[in-house]
Amino acid sequence: MIKVNGQEYAAEGLTVAELLERKGYDRTRVAVELNEEIVFKAQYDQTVIKDGDSVEVVSFVGGG
């Protein structure tokens, strides 16, 4: 089990890119932190989420 924005989710073993796709996020509009550390954009396809990890996806909408 992992946590995504505080909610438990069965997604251990997925990469960050796979998690974003499964949850329907647009990767050009997000910032992702894994255990409070930024995941570099260029590392989304290689970064594997492990059991117990906590993922924070900040998804931006337009307006300012």
């Binding site: 050009t28 509009r29 997000v30 910032a31 570099f40 900040v58 931006f60 909408v61 300012g64």
Partner: peptide
């Protein structure tokens, strides 16, 4: 939104 994400990242 894409510019916000670009800067933050």
């Amino acid at each position: 939104a894409d510019q916000k994400a670009m800067l933050v990242n």
